[in-house]
């Protein structure tokens, strides 16, 4: 089963990379970019085929390694 994990900085946590991207977009002439936040996408191919069990395992993976929950939130998307 395939899965995709989105990791984003929590609101309020400074994202200097996002700010730099917003600035660069502005200097390229893209007006009206109010804010940019940059995150990560992690694709996984799992041996598990049961969606509930896969989801539970992914939750553990996110909490233990894939995200640092002090500053990041995560979202799990299950594929086929």
């Amino acid at each position: 089963m395939r899965a995709r994990v989105h990791v984003m900085l929590k609101p309020g946590v400074l994202d200097p990379q996002g700010k730099a991207i917003a600035h660069a977009l502005g200097s390229l002439g893209f007006k009206g970019v109010n804010e940019v936040r940059q995150g990560k996408v992690i694709d996984l191919d799992l041996a598990e085929s049961d969606p509930a069990r896969a989801k539970a395992e992914l939750e553990q993976m996110c909490r233990q390694l894939l995200a640092n929950t002090v500053i990041e939130s995560y979202q799990i998307e299950l594929g086929q």
């Binding site: 946590v13 400074l14 200097p16 990379q17 730099a20 640092n68 002090v70 500053i71």
Partner: peptide, 10 residues
């Protein structure tokens, strides 16, 4: 506790 983020100057 806490975490070390990218320097404010990048």
């Amino acid at each position: 506790p806490g975490v070390l983020l990218t320097n404010k100057t990048l």
